[in-house]
Write a protein that binds this DNA or RNA. Structure first.
Lengths: 239, 239
DNA sequence: AACAAACCGGAAAGCCCGATCCGTTTCCTG
DNA sequence: CAGGAAACGGATCGGGCTTTCCGGTTTGTT
């Protein structure tokens, strides 16, 4: 991924994703890059509830500069996590390429959860939807579609319980986010144990009945609501 | 202690739990009850991040009245959840009385998680520690001790995996809190499925190795930090 | 070199929060 | 029933947050 490309119009550097705007002034483009890098650091460390002011401090720019480039916090979030979402979608493709369906399935789950652990902002993202950021949601949908295939393959191989559904991944991501947010850096590896418990439970054979999973629509509604409250301060806050 | 004062109010209603104070005026006692009842409602619905103002509104009293009875929000929380903590500790005792160790073990886990689901404030509490509220922490420690016995019995019966530890319950409580906070009332039963997956995984025989659980000290540190950030505003807020 | 447009950054507006102050009301007692 | 202490409650403080405004600075061009 060629970041800091010298030629201004190679990829769209317009103020907003609609690339149509006039070329940016050099200082503007430089600051835009600094802001995104700073936001990546701060969101990764503190989660999406980190303040715009802390991002500005990290970037060494004024608060207004951030809001000029990203009129709302949600847009900065979308810009910062575009590549993470790509990595997320790509992880699906790689997992599908794994000759062992069960390895692919479990490896994918562990990788996604590891991404949550490595990036607190990403963890928050996975439990939210951003109807306003289409590219982000398109990537999410693409990854979700790939995960459906992963499930089919793993079930066909007989190693994944038949009653597993894609909503169980969402559930696990929410649960993992809860562990990560509660433990913070006090127990940075605790999440691995949760994921291991869950994966062993997903493995065939069926060991007992399960309550019905939530409806897709209900989960979507929950994620939509979460993103609405993003501007409000957030859950666990340390430091 | 000898009550020399007119004992129209037989039960000691001292301002703070240390009961030593002079008898309260009738309106003060009435308001104190209203405040606790209102806080129970509001915290249960919105979680511990609910504002003191909203509790005051629900109770029909002024904001100052709340702070006169409970000089800090943490004290109100402790007062409100004293009985929930008792129920929590008592659930341990009842589970221990179950003749089937596995039933007792799983029933206890399901009941505690159900308590989290039924009371958003309780869910928050279970991932925090309040070093300033000794009675609360004493009850928590008592329940924890009982849970250790439950584990022993379930392991002795051969139905609980040998590598299960008490820290796995903490992990599950944090995970459950994550699901509850993410789903909210959009998918109010989603948590049941998470708990079912976990319980089935806890059941013997061992199906594979697990990463080491976090240290007790690390989990305590995590819970201690969480309670510090309680005063800060919190996650999704609707209404 | 010089000018206009674009851009910057700090200060301020408006909104929440927990916590406090102080004039007013209520209760208990003598 | 009257006086004083105790309790009440709304306004207010101090702080954090997102977002906006505006005077000063940088940039690119002529």
């Amino acid at each position: 991924m060629g970041m800091t490309s010298r030629d201004q119009n190679a990829h769209d550097t317009g103020g907003t994703p609609d690339s149509a705007g006039p070329p940016m002034r050099s200082d503007a483009e430089r600051n835009r890059g600094r802001i995104i890098a700073a936001a990546r650091t701060v969101f990764g460390r503190d989660g999406l509830h980190a303040s715009m002011a802390s991002v500005a401090r990290e970037a060494g720019v004024g608060i207004a500069t951030i809001f000029r480039h990203f009129p709302a916090k949600e847009e900065l979030v979308a810009a910062v996590f575009a590549d993470r979402m790509e990595a997320y979608a790509q992880a699906t493709a790689e997992a599908l390429a794994n000759p062992d369906p069960w390895d692919g399935f479990t490896g994918y789950i562990q990788e996604v959860c590891a991404m949550q652990a490595a990036d607190r902002g990403f963890a928050d993202m996975m439990t939210m939807s951003f109807p306003g950021a289409q590219p982000l949601e398109a990537l999410r949908a693409q990854a979700y579609q790939g995960f459906l295939e992963l499930i089919d393959h793993a079930k066909d191989s007989g190693q994944l319980r038949e009653d597993f559904t894609s909503r169980d991944l969402v559930l696990l991501l929410m649960a993992n986010a809860g562990v990560l947010s509660a433990t913070g850096d006090a127990a940075p590896d605790a999440w691995r144990r949760l994921v291991a418990w869950m994966i062993q439970s997903f493995q065939a054979p069926v060991r007992g009945p399960l309550p019905e999973p939530p409806e897709d629509a209900a989960l979507y509604e929950a994620m939509r609501r979460a993103s609405h409250g993003m501007n409000s301060p957030a859950t666990g806050k340390q430091h």
